[in-house]
């Protein structure tokens, strides 16, 4: 257990070092990268990814993966956006509850198919990715929800709050805090780690692994639903063909960079938060350095592959020996 703790700490320290290196290098080339204004931009770039990453990390810790979150995000935001359009007097808080509930429902469907039929999550969620995206088009008739139909109060949440930082940033970090407490101190949270480390052993110890599967996919869906409403707030419109497309890949990148092991059982909320910050910092640094936005996906892809290789080597013991100077 201590070896495991050391390993995780090494990973988080490594992420901090990478963030510092990025800040120093980019700051040396373009000093304006090291200003409060840049920090604001980074903070505004990450809330959606951060919220969805909390759900995705639980899924991956439980030894699954959820490819459908981009479509769930799109479905929740278009459904709630249409409700705002058709029922202008609908209160904002109800919109949030509905988005989260719709997301949780779609996530639960994923979990049910996977647990009931014992199927690999990746293929099932590849299927629902396309299934939910198709439903978005059927539901919306292919039409987007225009900015004038998104409540102004919602759009203001992406701009200000009483303490200066936009509401959606506060919500995102509060979600991360909840996830931290849940995963660290609650019984169900610990069961996710147990189920992911060794499902058979977990089952023998009386953990209902199928229930864990349902919980993580419902939570992942709920977070994607919440991110959907944040999308409407941040961008001011919801488009069936654009909203959430490819979102799952960014989130998986953040989670993998954050040190969550794809073999399940390993990963911390602080690590994932750092991973999200690193991705956000990279995406903000590119335009400041004058690098075309076309590079972003290639860089994200390279980061994922490198993080996976590092993860694989850590598991194989190579890096632990390298870092500690002792046998892993």
């Amino acid at each position: 257990m201590t070896a495991l703790g050391r390993l995780v700490r090494v990973r988080e320290a490594g992420l901090v070092v990478m963030l510092v290196i990025l800040a120093v290098v980019v700051g040396a080339i373009q000093p304006r990268f090291l200003t409060i204004a840049t920090l604001d931009i980074i903070l505004l770039a990450i809330p959606l990814i951060l919220v969805a990453a909390m759900g995705q990390m639980m899924v991956i810790v439980a030894r699954h993966v959820d490819l459908s979150i981009g479509s769930i995000l799109g479905f929740a935001s278009i459904a709630v956006g249409m409700m705002f359009r058709d029922i202008p007097e609908m209160p904002l808080w109800l919109g949030f509850i509905l988005a989260i509930a719709i997301g949780a429902g779609l996530g639960l469907v994923n979990g049910l198919i996977i647990a009931l039929f014992r199927l690999p999550a990746i293929i099932v969620t590849l299927g629902t990715l396309s299934l939910y995206r198709g439903l978005i088009f059927i539901l919306s008739g292919g039409r987007q929800v225009d900015p004038n139909h998104i409540p102004e109060a919602l759009i203001r949440m992406a701009q200000t709050s009483p303490i200066g930082v936009p509401w959606i940033v506060i919500i995102a970090f509060f979600t991360a805090l909840l996830a931290y407490v849940f995963l660290r101190h609650l019984r169900l949270g610990r069961e996710i780690y147990a189920a992911g480390s060794n499902p058979d052993a977990a089952r023998l110890r009386g953990i209902r692994v199928n229930r864990v599967t349902l919980v993580v996919f419902s939570l992942s869906g709920a977070m994607a639903g919440l991110a959907g409403l944040m999308y409407a707030a941040r961008f001011g419109y919801v488009n069936p063909g654009i909203t959430g497309v490819g979102f799952e890949l960014t989130v998986i990148a953040a989670v993998v960079i954050g040190g969550v092991s794809i073999n399940g059982g390993i990963g911390t909320v602080p690590g994932v938060v750092l991973g999200v910050l690193l991705l956000g910092a990279v995406s903000v640094a590119l335009p400041i350095l004058g690098i075309s936005g076309f590079w972003q996906d290639a860089i994200y892809g390279a980061i994922i592959v490198i993080a996976l290789i590092v993860d694989g080597s850590v598991r194989a013991g190579g890096l632990v020996r390298l870092v500690t100077g002792r046998g892993g």
Binding site: L249, I252, A253, V256, W295, Q296, D297, A298, I299, Y300, G301, A302, I304, V305, L308
Partner: peptide, 10 residues
């Protein structure tokens, strides 16, 4: 999945 993002990105 990683190389899918990478190849498309390149």
């Amino acid at each position: 999945i990683g190389t899918m993002v990478l190849y498309r990105g390149i």
